[in-house]
């Protein structure tokens, strides 16, 4: 009887210790590192807590589920669907010019905390080892779709540009004026690619030509289309409170 009692107490102690350890890790991380702004907003504080909890409790290298070719589904294009069409939101003159020349003049600048900032043409990007993955796009709206994506792992390009040890965020700036930033875990995640191919063809305009990001560990809206520039920073670039969480792992 005494043995049994002892066992119960130690199990209780184990549960409590485990929970407090997890909570402790999350809270200490939040206190020691400067985090993206909360704007004094309780919702954004909740988002930061969710981010820290996911980073503390999940395997950051785990791969998102990959599907079979037969699982490829219909795929709506949402947000901007053509920045070269002046009648649509997200119109951009520079993009229209590039589109008119089949993107031959398109180059991707990688700047910031890198030893060798430079501009990468489509040929340069395609010289790296490519990755093809059939993954599920999960939109914050509530729908999902499966497609095959082919592209260059972002990690390879960042290494090539000589990413510095102090780098903390990778910022994507798009032609349709969209800013997204991700941390180093997602930037170097093996499935985070700059995709130029979709379902065995060149990436269509509607889905972000010539290159879009695929960040399979976050909600679809983070997979920026029509990428214009990549800037690596050692601090969070505050583009203002746009009303959305900056991290969308859930």
């Amino acid at each position: 009887m005494q043995m049994k009692n002892k066992l119960i107490i130690s199990r209780r102690a184990a549960i409590i210790t485990g929970l407090s350890a997890a909570m402790g890790t999350i809270l200490t991380n939040s206190c020691t590192k400067p985090l993206p702004p909360t704007y004094g907003n309780i919702l954004r504080m909740g988002d930061v807590f969710t981010y820290e909890a996911q980073r503390a409790l999940l395997d950051v290298k785990a791969l998102a589920k990959e599907y079979n070719f037969s699982d490829i589904s219909s795929f709506p294009a949402t947000g901007s669907i053509n920045p070269s069409d002046a009648s649509l939101p997200g119109f951009n003159v520079d993009y229209e010019l590039l589109h008119r020349n089949q993107f031959v003049n398109w180059k991707l600048p990688i700047e910031g905390c890198v030893a060798r900032p430079g501009k990468y043409s489509m040929d340069d990007i395609k010289k790296f080892k490519s990755r093809t993955q059939i993954t599920r796009h999960t939109c914050e709206e509530g729908w999902s779709a499966i497609a095959e994506w082919t592209g260059t792992p972002l990690g390879l390009l960042l290494h090539h540009a000589g990413i510095q040890a102090k780098a903390r965020f990778v910022n994507f700036i798009s032609y349709d004026n969209y800013n997204i930033s991700i941390d180093m875990f997602d930037a170097f995640h093996p499935q985070t690619i700059l995709a130029y191919g979709m379902n065995g063809r060149n990436l269509p305009i509607q889905h972000g030509a010539p290159i879009r990001a695929r960040i399979e560990t976050q909600i679809g809206g983070q997979s920026v289309k029509y990428i214009k520039k990549i800037v690596v920073t050692d601090h969070f670039v505050d583009t203002g409170d746009n009303g959305w969480a900056w991290y969308m792992g859930i």
Partner: peptide, 23 residues
């Protein structure tokens, strides 16, 4: 399977909706 682009401006208040839900 098909692809099509959306030109309709949808109702979407998920910016605060999602953050409030998770909080």
């Amino acid at each position: 399977p098909m692809s099509a682009g959306r030109t309709y401006s949808i109702f979407n208040e998920n910016g605060w909706g999602r953050s409030l839900h998770f909080l």
